[in-house]
Simulated assay, not measured.
Amino acid sequence: MSRRLRVAAYAVCVRDGRILLARWVARDGIKRWTLPGGGMDHGEDPVDTVLREVAEETGYLAEVTALLGIDSMRERQPRKLSGDVDFHGLRVVYEGEITGGELRPETDGSTDLAAWHELTAVPELERVALVDIGLALWRQRPPAGTTRACHGNG
């Protein structure tokens, strides 16, 4: 089985009880809300990645105000022609503050809409798990930068 590592950076931007989300369009056409962010280019700093992605997906300029944590996920992804892939996603999650720009949807990208949502309405949204992970990191501010329980040294 082939292996693939993807490193990405995302922003949790909360203002006046609302969170900024982008609507991701999967390859199968299903749409779910996600944190603005995305894959890091080779040689790119993760802070530069998240600022670029926020601008691309939402139209806003932002600044990073805190590193909230890192989420690591792994899953087997089926591929029709090349066999399954052992996928490992490493997601750097920052707190971001909007500093300028105007809200607009991304053009020719993986998202089709950006919007502010009341924090109380998030549980009702069709969303990816990363939204809940990002909000947990934002609310809890865990010292180790993860909401996962510590499993020892190994």
Rank of each mutant, 00 (worst) to 15 (best):
V128L: 06
V47Q: 04
A55P: 04
P123H: 02
W138F: 09
R91F: 01
L68R: 02
E44K: 02
D71P: 04
R23Q: 15
G29M: 09
G38I: 00
G152H: 15
E53L: 10
E118W: 11
T34W: 03
G109S: 15
V128K: 07
V93F: 08
D132L: 01
V14D: 01
A136E: 09
F87I: 05
L103S: 10
E124K: 03
C13T: 06
S82V: 13
R104M: 11
D132E: 10
G96Q: 06
G89R: 10
V64W: 03
D84E: 05
D86K: 03
V85R: 13
V25G: 12
Y60T: 05
L135E: 01
G39L: 08
Q140T: 04
P46W: 03
D41I: 00
L51Y: 08
C13S: 01
N153Q: 14
A22N: 05
E57A: 12
Y10A: 01
R6G: 07
D86L: 07
Y94G: 04
C150K: 15
A62T: 08
D71K: 03
G37A: 01
E97Q: 04
G39Y: 11
T111V: 15
R76P: 04
G38R: 06
C150L: 15
S82T: 09
L67M: 08
D84T: 03
E53A: 10
L135R: 07
G59C: 11
W33P: 02
A121K: 11
E57L: 09
V64D: 13
D41S: 12
D84C: 00
G59R: 00
T34E: 07
G134N: 10
V128C: 10
S2A: 13
